[in-house]
Design a protein around this nucleic acid. Structure first.
Lengths: 210, 210
DNA sequence: GAGAAAATCGGGAATTTTTCCTATGGAAGG
DNA sequence: CCTTCCATAGGAAAAATTCCCGATTTTCTC
């Protein structure tokens, strides 16, 4: 078996170095490049060969996901292991749909990184527990708000999720504040989302806000 | 010079391991403990001796800052080096006020960690460029919440910004719901942030949420 | 250190918001 | 036509918030 050529993209130098040391303990792995931003990573990987890219999605340059997509389109043979802070279902499923070959959360054990890289090298698709669970959740959300809420309720929901106050919404929809308050109650009951922040988070992770 | 006894608290096992490897390259440093959560760290450090704690503020157990305060109160001789994702002015100044002896952002060079630890051991107060700059900014930014809010108010603010309900916060802080409600009112008045979602947005754009 | 200033904590009362229940009119559908 | 669901709101009760206040404790200042 020949040596796996691994590249690391993470905006935190310390984290990169930590990874490098970790990975270099493995005899079949060489770290061939490190990148601190998306552009550099993209340029280098288009011009040079690597087997695996360990990619932190939360990178500056605004678009870890975008880079992932572009890289996969340009260099399809490159295996990409996403290594993210966030285990949110939406994030995981976005990343996998964008073409990631594996997904680890940063709460994984150090060994998990090594075995994930080796697994990838062998053609596997390693997912951390958390990521697998998240993917599962993302699949079967049968009680999405737009399904349990009436049209008007859903409209109020999106407004609430944007942080508008009850009376602002009433003004905007030209109805009584009382009515909006009543809708709010119904929405909370039907969705289980207790406050505007929860609604916002829900709406965001489910891409319900434009 | 005797060996510096260093402990590491970070919720990401991979990061801890990276630090350990980095620090152990230095002959005058021994890593004596690693912690994945605040409680464990606190308990251990009260019972055992360490010279320096490298502390990631964004830890579970809700309250990296709080742990920092408690540790400083209980074990004043312990030097604490905060090592955070965020270089936000507010964060830096809160941490320093809570008693941190040094502050590095994760974008620092790997070597910076080592030199910061050594500097701390020699009685210095290492700040990363970013942190120093942030502290400076914090001085001029007279509207920032951490300046208009008291420590306790700021703490409640971060909890509200995370979407916790008043009573949940009361339970977590072991005070009356009435007190938290009163804090909430003060926070809203002082910051002009009218609801949890606005607080969340503010906190996010200012990177105040670990 | 003594005194001043600020912070933490909560009670009480007034006010506002939210909930719950009810009701009317209209649209969709069998 | 009758049933059902939806949009709209009013009233009353319940809950949350605000405002005002006082008691301690901490922290800062001279």
């Amino acid at each position: 078996m020949t040596c796996l050529r691994v590249a690391i993209a993470d905006d935190h130098a310390v984290v990169r170095t930590g990874f490098r040391r970790l990975l270099e303990l493995e005899p079949n792995v060489t770290v061939v490049a490190e990148f601190g931003d998306c552009e550099t990573a993209y340029t280098w990987l288009c011009a040079n060969h690597a087997d695996i890219l360990v990619l932190d999605l939360s990178m500056p340059g605004r678009g870890g996901l975008e880079t992932l997509r572009r890289l996969k389109a340009r260099v399809p043979t490159l295996k990409i292991l996403v290594f993210s802070m966030h285990g949110a279902p939406a994030m995981v499923s976005q990343a996998m749909q964008a073409g990631a070959d594996g997904y680890l959360t940063k709460s994984s054990a150090p060994d998990a990184l090594i075995s994930a890289v080796l697994d990838l090298g062998a053609g596997g698709h390693p997912l951390s527990q958390e990521a697998a669970h998240a993917l599962n959740e993302a699949g079967n959300d049968s009680q999405a708000p737009h399904l349990v809420l009436s049209p008007r309720e859903f409209q109020v929901f999106t407004l609430l999720a944007q942080g508008l106050a009850v009376d602002e919404i009433a003004g905007r929809l030209c109805v009584s504040g009382k009515t909006v308050a009543n809708y709010q109650t119904a929405i909370r009951q039907k969705t289980g989302l207790g406050n505007a922040l929860e609604m916002f988070r829900y709406a965001r992770t489910h891409a319900l806000l434009e």
